[in-house]
Amino acid sequence: MAADPVVSVDAVSKVFATRAGPVHALRDVSFSVPRGHTLGLVGESGSGKSTIARLVLGLERPTTGAVRFESVDLSAAGRAARKRMRRRMQMVFQDPYSSLLPHLTVLSNVVEPLRLHGIGTVAQRRERATQMLVRVGIGAASAGFYPRQFSGGQQQRIAIARALVLEPEFLVCDEPTSSLDVSVQAQILGLLQGLQRDLGLTCLFVSHNLAVIERMATEVVVMCGGRVVESASTEELFAHPAHPYTRRLLAAVLPLEGDAPPLPADDWDPASLDDDEREVVRISPGHYLRA
């Protein structure tokens, strides 16, 4: 991957204690997100994607390994330093309605991060929040409405405005379109692409849908059973998928009109990873495989 990473995940493992015993959510995960790029993190439910997202934002701490934001280890940083860094890192969640505060107006929802970080006067916060709402396609005349009065796609636009009002450098998108209709998904993805280009954002885009990842990401990391099984540039991964799990995910993608038919699925059991200690090796420039 390119130099100058904004976020680096180095040999991270995460173990959760449960009544049934320890659960290994992540095992020796490493990747970096180059500045100005979008890294797609893909895998089925339970693969460890959301745990990675929370670790990257400093909401969880790794059991072993380190997560660094511009070379600063988030686990070692003090409370004040973490708060400063969190202003520079924001998240767009899967369910926009659950992520918004239902008792506050749309404008107040977007103002809230500015208030929490003590940015500007009351009037300046309202003006900045209104400008961001307009930028994501929510008219200023609707700012006094409540989240329940908007459609799911409009709610996600509001959630994006709230995430970007602090002018972060790094944005985590955790399945931001999975709860939306297909036509609305395309609109939200287009909005995110335009905002990333205009604002110079670096992004981690989490999804189970490789079609979405192909559109949004410049690099892809494929997760299965808490491990990285393959990583490469988007173009390389889609042209030459090497791991059977990657090929299985690609086989599940419904082709759009004019697309090539999906690849046949491999007969491969994900349980084979349970005790798999094989290393990730480079099979071509920029293309890595657990083999």
Rank of each mutant, 00 (worst) to 15 (best):
S108G: 02
R148Y: 07
G152T: 07
I158S: 00
R135L: 07
D73N: 15
V72L: 11
M89L: 09
R87Q: 15
H103A: 13
R115E: 14
H103Y: 14
D174G: 09
C173G: 07
M91N: 02
L107C: 07
L74R: 06
R148Q: 14
G153K: 10
V165C: 09
F170K: 09
T121I: 09
C173E: 05
R157E: 03
Q131R: 14
D95Y: 03
G118C: 10
L171Q: 06
A140P: 08
L166A: 10
V136E: 06
R126F: 03
V111A: 03
R162Y: 01
N109V: 01
G118F: 09
Q94G: 08
V134R: 14
E127N: 03
R82L: 15
V136M: 07
L164R: 10
D174M: 12
T121C: 11
G118L: 12
I138S: 02
G120M: 11
P96A: 12
I160K: 07
M89K: 10
S98L: 08
E169M: 04
V122M: 08
Y97P: 02
N109A: 05
M132H: 02
E127C: 01
D95L: 03
M91C: 12
G137Q: 06
R79V: 13
S108E: 14
M89G: 08
E167N: 15
S151C: 11
M85V: 13
A163D: 05
S98F: 04
R135F: 00
N109W: 01
A80I: 05
L116K: 12
F170H: 06
L104Q: 12
E70F: 00
A143S: 15
P147K: 07
V106G: 01
S75P: 05
M91P: 00
L107F: 03
V172M: 07
T121E: 08
Q131K: 15
S99E: 04
R148N: 10
R148A: 15
S99D: 02
